[in-house]
């Protein structure tokens, strides 16, 4: 892991307030699914890097895709990056998710769906069933990208304006019995993890989640991005950036 100079290959709006950026590197380490990168913003008044999940990557082309929602000043600045611009990027960071089982159910809520394509790309020998949920039709992204390499992709919207109507957690739970996956991997807001805990109660399949927290250094030194987990040795804080971002849902204290 090093900090690297990246060249912006593409940076375009792909849905309502959602952008996709492709970065090319001279050299790219092996990437696992659900790892992240940390971008130094060109605006020096914003001193902290911005962490984003690696949405997808192409090892041969040495490119990485970042799919991001414009939610604040930092992401606004990022939308101004033009083709050919240079960005300083740290990657790949975090433990990532490498499924052990064969049949994997993927569940993504909102921008959480942006983690899923890289999980699929990094594990070509697995069988993926993806369930992605968004607020409405205007926010739907990554359906086609996932469809290329997943056995099945189902889209749900909260208001029913696209795909199935309802929360993606409920839609995935309804499909669970027929699929019988070996593992479930979920990425979305914390409220979704609480919903998963309820809807999948009693389900024995291990559920992995990717957590999000405001970060400082991104490499495990500053201890600001902690989350609480409960393990055999008791309850305590772990670092989302270094020990995570992927944890077993059972051990996460929500």
């Amino acid at each position: 892991m090093k900090d690297r100079q990246a060249i912006v290959v593409k940076n375009t709006r792909v849905a309502d307030e959602i952008w996709s950026m492709t970065l090319r590197f001279d050299d790219l380490d092996e990437i696992k699914g659900a790892q992240f990168l940390d971008i130094k913003l060109p605006d020096r008044s914003k001193i902290l890097r911005r962490p984003f999940c690696i949405c997808d990557f192409d090892a041969a082309e040495k490119t990485v895709e970042v799919c991001y929602a414009v939610v604040g000043g930092g992401t606004k600045v990022l939308t101004e990056a033009k083709e050919g611009d240079k960005l300083n990027v740290l990657l790949p960071l975090g433990n990532g998710y490498s499924p052990k089982g064969k049949k994997i159910m993927l569940i993504g809520g909102g921008m959480g769906a942006a983690v899923l394509p890289a999980v699929v790309t990094a594990n070509p020998d697995k069988e993926f069933y993806a369930y992605i949920g968004f607020a409405n039709a205007g926010k739907v992204v990554l359906e086609k990208q996932l469809a290329d390499n997943c056995t099945n992709v189902t889209v749900a919207t909260d208001d029913g304006s696209y795909g199935k109507k309802g929360f993606v957690t409920t839609v995935a739970r309804e499909a669970y019995d027929a699929i019988q996956p070996d593992e479930i991997f979920v990425c979305g807001p914390e409220v979704m993890y609480r919903a998963i805990k309820k809807t999948f109660e009693g389900v024995k399949t291990p559920v992995y989640v990717s957590l999000e927290q405001r970060m400082g250094c991104g490499i495990g030194a500053c201890l600001v991005c902690n989350c609480k987990v409960k393990r055999a040795d008791g309850e305590g804080y772990v670092r989302v950036c270094k020990d995570g971002p992927v944890f077993l849902l059972d051990e996460v204290v929500l």
């Binding site: 001193i47 405001r214 201890l223 600001v224 991005c225 902690n226 989350c227």
Partner: peptide, 23 residues
């Protein structure tokens, strides 16, 4: 020491606030 609950960091103009709490 476990330190303070998250969020423990907030970026500000040209700086940042932390409240790690000596973890």
């Amino acid at each position: 020491r476990e330190g303070n609950p998250p969020p423990r960091v907030a970026e500000t103009y040209g700086g940042m606030l932390n409240s790690v709490g000596l973890q």
